[in-house]
Simulated assay, not measured.
Amino acid sequence: MSSLPIFDVAGSAMSAQSMRLNTIASNLANAESVASTAEGAYRPRQPVFAAVAMAQQPSLTGVQVTRVEESKAEAVKRYEPGHPLADADGYVYAPNIDPVAEMVDLISASRGYQAGVEVLNTAKELALATLNVGR
Rank of each mutant, 00 (worst) to 15 (best):
I6Y: 10
Y93V: 06
V119W: 02
G40V: 02
I24R: 00
D87Y: 11
A86E: 08
D8F: 08
A25I: 10
A35F: 08
N132R: 15
R135T: 15
A29H: 12
A101P: 00
M103Y: 04
V92N: 03
A38L: 04
Q46L: 00
L21I: 15
F49G: 07
V48I: 15
S71C: 02
Q56N: 13
A13W: 09
Q17F: 11
V119G: 06
R67L: 06
M54W: 04
L126M: 15
T122P: 01
I107T: 15
M103R: 11
T66D: 07
K77P: 00
N132W: 01
E70V: 03
A129P: 01
L106G: 08
L128S: 07
I97E: 04
S2E: 06
Y42R: 05
G116I: 12
Q57A: 11
F49L: 13
V133F: 08
R43Q: 11
S3I: 14
V52G: 03
A73H: 07
A55M: 06
G62C: 07
A13F: 13
P47F: 03
V9P: 02
A53M: 02
P81Q: 12
T130L: 07
A73D: 14
P81A: 06
S59Y: 08
E32M: 05
T130H: 03
L126V: 14
S36P: 01
A29D: 06
M103L: 14
Y91W: 12
A13D: 07
L21G: 01
A29C: 10
R135C: 07
V52I: 15
R45K: 13
D87L: 09
N22C: 04
E80D: 13
Y91L: 05
I6R: 03
V117E: 04
R43D: 00
S2F: 15
A123N: 00
A53K: 05
N27D: 09
R78M: 05
K124Q: 15
P5D: 12
G11E: 10
A51F: 06
A29L: 09
R20D: 09
A25V: 10
V34Q: 02
A123I: 02
Y113L: 08
Y91P: 00
T37W: 07
A109K: 10
E102V: 12
L4A: 13
Q114K: 10
S3M: 12
T66R: 06
F49M: 13
A55L: 04
A53L: 00
T37M: 05
P44A: 15
G112Q: 06
V65P: 00
N96R: 05
Q46S: 10
R111F: 13
E125W: 01
D8G: 14
Q114L: 05
A35G: 06
M1G: 14
L21Y: 00
A25K: 06
S108G: 10
A10Y: 11
E69L: 14
D98M: 06
T122R: 11
V119Q: 05
P99L: 15
K72M: 08
G11Y: 08
